[in-house]
């Protein structure tokens, strides 16, 4: 079996708290190539991952520290983040 991309995951605010995790380096299966597929793959871990990242939840994603759609394609060594809608200011 070939390994897929290795990426850096980051989580913020309520997502970080619920997961009990702020960052993690993961090696993805080869078929996981978009931000949305990363989310779905994390949901597949079950438990708190499935609850926190559930598709019904209004979450935002960033790729390489820029807001992105879940259709964005990822590359090896890059950074993907999930968090709730922002509330600064």
């Amino acid at each position: 079996m070939t390994a897929g991309f290795t990426i850096q995951l980051r989580f913020f605010a309520s997502v970080r708290e619920q997961l009990g995790c702020s960052e993690q380096t993961v090696t993805l299966p080869p078929e996981v190539v978009t931000v949305g597929q990363v989310r779905q793959w994390l949901i597949g871990r079950g438990g708190v991952w499935a609850v926190t990242l559930a598709q019904g939840r209004n979450l935002r994603a960033a790729y390489q520290q820029e807001m992105c759609d879940e259709s964005v394609e990822i590359a090896d060594g890059h950074e993907v983040a999930f968090f709730p809608p922002v509330t600064g200011g």
Binding site: F12, A62, P84, P85, T87, G88, G89
Partner: peptide, 13 residues
């Protein structure tokens, strides 16, 4: 300010 409120990654608790 309007864009900061909706695009800059800050979160308040």
């Amino acid at each position: 300010m309007d864009y900061l409120k909706t695009e800059a990654p800050f979160w308040k608790k």
